[in-house]
Simulated assay, not measured.
Amino acid sequence: MIIKSSDLETTLGSPSSTQTTRVLHLINGEHFAGAERVQDLLAMALPQFGYEAGFACVKADKFPKVRRSSSPLYELNMKNKFDLLCYRNIAKIICDENYKLIHAHTPRSLLIGSLAARATDCPLIYHVHSPAGRDSERGLKNWINTKVETWALSRVDRMICVSNSLMGYMESLGHPAVKLNVVSNGVAAIDDLPHRDAPGKNDVWTLGTMALFRPRKGVEVLLEALSILKNRGVKTHLRAVGQFETSEYESEVMNLVNRLGIADMITWTGFQTNVNEQIRKMDLFVLPSLYGEGLPMVVLESMANAVPVVASNVEGIPEAVRDNVDGLIFKPGDAKDLAAKVESMVGDSERWNSMSQSAYVRQRTCLSDISMAEGTSEVYSSLLN
């Protein structure tokens, strides 16, 4: 169900009679990347623990089109980043539809959510997906996001951090520990994976990466590593899944590809919705992020598909991927180290099989959508009780 702000007067009627407690998730909604997959998975898994999610999108675009959940969705698009009056529509939804909790997921939605919480006296939770102060290379934007987040957090009752690293970051900003909770991201476990063997030493190994490509994702480091592997005679091909944040950045990356002479070694797929299908086409998943990660969903999705991960030592990543157990960890920004880690795996079928099995088991036991929903529900219950 999708409701637009122009329809509010006629479509919001009597409160739901469901026995579950309703939680309104405030999200941007313009992308469908890691944080949005968290939101979608929570909506599907929370009912097991007595909670029903609804979504209010303040920048609706991809999320309403791509999501798998069927939760109520309200499109309340802000006219611009300073259009704060849409909090009134959110407050109306909360009152008319009997929502008991507000759960915000971005600095923008947190700002609106804090105003709606004041207007309705509804408890407010903020989901810290990544450090706002390290979101991009634009210092002014980071500073503004941090200031907005800090101001709005004064009204927050609880914060959910997706990793211990993020909780430490929030503590360093002066947020009280009593408000902080760690709930690791999770993805759906996959049963009956089709059997696969590691490629041989003389085969072409498919390296994969998946992201909303922007500078902090470090794709340049991966491209430089690909060039190094080519010069060493290591047979690899890169499958890059995702769209670019801007056309300007896409041009910069393509210019680097041409300078390195590796265009024939890369398949750019663009944005894809079939995440698991894409990951199963990869022999190793590579995440070369430079900074700004909480606990990347795509790492967990790779583990769920029994694909070993080679990832940078950034924030929450090592909390999921144990070095030399579930995958390999390399120095952020170091293309030579990344190339060396990939080369050490190529052709070593015994090592690949061991890491593949370990990653698969670890995701199922520690990093599932069910464990994420259970942890989130415990935060909700701590407020309502």
Rank of each mutant, 00 (worst) to 15 (best):
D334P: 04
R214C: 10
D283C: 04
P107S: 11
S302D: 03
A373K: 11
P308Y: 01
A56M: 06
S302R: 04
L110N: 07
L223Y: 11
T269H: 07
G186P: 13
A339S: 08
T269C: 06
S227M: 10
G270F: 08
R155P: 13
S5K: 13
L153H: 04
L284N: 02
P199E: 03
S70R: 15
L223D: 04
N305M: 05
E36K: 09
E343D: 12
K65R: 15
S14F: 11
S70N: 15
S371T: 09
S344N: 14
G327E: 03
V310L: 13
D157E: 09
A211V: 00
A43W: 05
M345Y: 03
C161P: 14
L287A: 03
Q363N: 13
E343R: 05
L284D: 10
E171G: 02
L76Q: 02
D7Q: 15
K341L: 00
Q363M: 13
L284R: 06
S302K: 00
H237M: 02
R351C: 08
A43R: 12
L226M: 09
A45V: 03
E378C: 05
H129Q: 12
A43G: 06
A339L: 00
E315S: 12
D283M: 06
V321E: 07
S377V: 01
L226W: 05
I190S: 03
R351Q: 15
H105P: 10
G34N: 09
L284Q: 09
C86A: 00
G333A: 00
A311H: 08
L300C: 11
A263T: 13
I90V: 15
L338H: 00
V128P: 05
V156R: 02
L222M: 13
P107D: 02
E75R: 12
I329A: 00
